[in-house]
């Protein structure tokens, strides 16, 4: 398969670049690693996030603002019906009173319940593990919202205007975190991760869970991390450390 060859080629180039130790070429190497526009995504990759709760500050909402700006989720000042793709959770242990904080968003499960229940197949998982809504076939039944264990989905309750060209959204369909597919396809990291690293505390890491050499895979191997509601066996693509 061409996808396979391309993915291999990209790894090769990455290796070569590391050996050559290019200076100003680095930016270009990243470019070269990007999937070409014609290339379809492949299951050789599985994109995911690693979130270190110990670095995530209670009052910091950089990831949330980053997401809201990227996708123009400005809302109508009606918190019950406005969409939220990512939100900050503050946790207090009932026994020990230990307080921690973390962002909650679509967990991009390997076996997503939203995909199981969707009658039209509009909820789907892309080959590279990103769980999405095909808003062209979503009929707005909201069964997926009921089925999501993470409360990660929102229904668009009113007409929208001024959407971003790369993030179409509209009334009557369900939506959730897209892991910023439009950015991932250009080899950029999701807006929340970028915001966390530039304006927040660097608690979020994005990468390919299938690539043993990726930073995220190494981190996950080195230190324990957990899935939220691991009892459900969904194999989430978003993992947490130090909750």
């Amino acid at each position: 398969m061409t996808a396979e060859i391309n993915a291999k080629r990209r790894r090769l180039i990455k290796g070569a670049a590391a050996v050559a130790g290019l200076g100003s070429g680095l930016q270009l190497v990243e470019l070269a690693l990007a999937k070409s526009d014609e290339e379809a995504v492949s299951a050789l990759q599985r994109w995911g996030l690693l979130i270190d709760s110990s670095k995530c500050a209670t009052n910091c909402t950089a990831c949330v603002s980053g997401c809201n700006e990227e996708h123009n989720l400005e809302g109508f000042d009606r918190p019950e019906t406005d969409a939220q793709w990512i939100r900050k959770l503050d946790l207090t242990d009932q026994q020990t009173q230990h307080v921690s904080s973390l962002p909650m968003l679509c967990q991009h499960c390997e076996n997503p319940p939203c995909v199981d229940v969707c009658p039209t197949g509009a909820s789907f998982k892309r080959d590279d593990g990103i769980v999405l809504v095909d808003k062209h076939t979503c009929i707005g039944c909201r069964y997926c919202v009921i089925a999501c264990p993470y409360k990660a989905r929102s229904f668009v309750h009113e007409s929208l205007h001024n959407q971003k060209s790369y993030s179409p959204r509209g009334k009557g369909t369900v939506e959730s975190c897209t892991l910023c597919v439009h950015r991932v396809d250009k080899d950029l990291s999701p807006a929340c991760v970028e915001a966390c690293n530039t304006k927040g505390n660097g608690a979020m890491m994005f990468g390919d869970l299938n690539d043993a050499d990726s930073e995220i895979a190494k981190q996950m191997k080195a230190a324990p991390s957990r899935q939220v509601r691991e009892d459900l066996g969904l194999n989430t693509g978003v993992r947490y450390q130090n909750i």
Partner: peptide, 19 residues
Amino acid sequence: STYHAVDDPSLSEDLIGIL
């Protein structure tokens, strides 16, 4: 200004070709 990098002679011909 990394966009000048296209002409960067330190890059191998191959890499530029792929880019």
